[in-house]
Design a protein around this nucleic acid. Structure first.
Length: 424
RNA sequence: GGAGAGGUGGGUGAGUGGCUGAAACCAACAGUUUGCUAAACUGUCGUAGGGGGUAACUCUUACCGGGGGUUCGAAUCCCCCCCUCUCCGCCA
């Protein structure tokens, strides 16, 4: 969430920036500033009263010690009346802070200045394109037909044992998953990211830390008996590893990677074009996360984009990078690049990665800070990106590399799959 | 799940009602000494909020797992919750 002092000192700039999200936040911002005034005033009054009580208590202590018990008894009523006032102020303070927090939770991150203005995905800006549309014959098949033909993934079985959106990978289909995961992890490790295997369930505090709660409550599976959430992305546990941590400046950047399954309810988002692997409740993803010095975060974002770019190039997939417009950006992000791979048979782009800079928006909730050169604690910037999400990569790969007799495996992947072709 | 023990600053660990935001030691950082390293010595060394000052700085409040309570006063007493450890049970 945004920092209140920042809002206070940059009111107009914040409101203007947020306008890119096609909503006027003036009312909320002004309310936050007003509540902050109240909060500070109340805090000040309260502190003065507490100081008075502390002083009197000390005096009573000394009187007791020197045997002047009667004098001590005379002061006690004074303290009692102060405590009445303290109680009132404490209530006011707690209510003010709560009200302010509720408002803050509703304010998304301020988009970076280069974020394009726009309302929908149509207004995103393409910034890079690589490769070309594969030439496939008239007999080209969508991936859901290919996986059936070559017996790679079974949706019916998944539906039987769990439900829709939980596919069962079989044989070479399963091996392909494992190959992609290992390939992505190896690439991330080679790029200096440290590999982690985090828990797949997180508590409420972690959900708030990275901003999934309260914003996207309905998107996560919640395990009621133990009050835990299944992770929608490795970003959540990985970033939360550094919740409430103060790093040394020399520790930065912290680079982490991890493979995890991801669980998303995707409530209400099932439509016509979500067949096959296009949208799932459980899918695999390798994530890269960085905690960095604020001065470097945008250079590092470029770096991460470059990393993802190379993965797609090594897989030989026709893809493009788009800069999301204000209306299409996630709640917590200030700048997001989406990667879309071409799906040869569906003849459309599929989102396979989303790489973002969150600046201090997550760090503020996480309380992830570092000691800067002046010895002051300062919030880090957090970034993350999918590198990469598997299902749509598989969809794209199967469709684009199909021929009459099977599917060709990209060369970079062969050491991992152990086969260079999928055929009958 | 049952029984017991315990949760204090980066770490170890003192502290059972006021003199403790917290001893001591270690680590860390800065400096002195030194041909270099080591050692020794000196100093610094929690976080957050509020007030005052251009600033250096200064005053103040809160925090000893979390939340309530008792008391003029709580790290210290009481209650609830969470977590850790040991033993037992169960188990991949």
């Amino acid at each position: 969430m945004l920092q209140v002092p920042f809002i206070r000192e940059n009111r107009d700039q914040v409101i203007q920036g947020l306008a890119k999200r096609n909503k006027d936040f003036t009312t909320q911002i002004d309310a936050i500033i007003a509540l902050d005034e109240t909060r500070r005033k109340t805090q000040n009054d309260l502190d003065n009263l507490l100081a008075e009580v502390n002083k009197l208590s000390k005096e009573i202590g000394e009187m007791m010690k020197s045997g002047r018990k009667d004098d001590a008894e005379k002061i006690k009523p004074q303290v009692a009346s102060l405590k009445e006032q303290i109680k009132t102020l404490e209530t006011t303070l707690a209510e003010t802070e709560e009200a302010q927090k509720q408002l803050l939770y509703q304010i998304p991150n301020v988009p970076n200045e280069i974020v394009p203005v726009g309302k929908t995905a149509d207004e995103n800006v393409e910034v890079y394109r690589w490769g070309s549309v594969p030439t496939l014959g008239d007999n080209k098949k969508p991936h859901w037909e290919l996986i059936e033909e070559y017996d790679l993934i079974d949706f019916e079985l998944g539906t039987k044992i769990t439900g829709a959106g939980f596919p069962v990978y079989k044989g070479k289909g399963a091996r392909l998953q494992r190959a992609l995961i290992n390939f992505f992890l190896d690439e991330a490790t080679a790029a200096g990211y440290r590999e982690f295997q985090p828990p797949l369930m997180v508590n409420e505090a972690s959900g708030y830390g990275t901003g999934q709660l309260p914003d996207k409550e309905g998107q996560m599976y919640h395990v009621g008996v133990d009050d835990l959430y299944l992770i929608p992305t490795a970003e959540v546990p990985l970033t939360n590893l550094y919740r409430d941590v103060i790093l040394k400046e020399s520790d930065l950047p912290v680079k982490m990677t991890g493979y995890t399954p991801c669980f998303r309810r995707e409530a209400g988002s099932w439509g016509a074009h979500v067949r096959g692997l296009n949208r799932l409740h459980q899918f695999d993803k390798v994530e890269i996360v960085q905690l960095v010095h604020p001065d470097q975060s945008y250079a590092i974002l470029e770096n991460m984009v470059e990393h993802v770019k190379q993965l797609l190039q090594k897989l030989g997939l026709h893809f493009r990078i788009i800069r999301l417009c204000g209306g299409d950006m996630g709640f917590t992000s200030s700048l997001t690049y989406d990667f879309e791979a071409w799906s040869g048979a569906q003849e459309r782009w599929l989102e396979v990665s989303s790489t973002s800079n969150f600046e201090t928006f997550q760090a503020n909730r996480l309380k992830c800070r570092f000691k800067n050169a002046d010895g002051k604690t300062q919030l880090v910037h957090t970034l993350n990106g999918s590198a990469l999400a598997l299902p749509r990569i598989v969809a794209s790969l199967l469709e684009n590399n199909q021929d009459a007799n099977g599917i060709k495996i990209p060369e970079a992947l062969v050491p991992y799959t152990g086969f260079d072709r999928i055929s009958k």
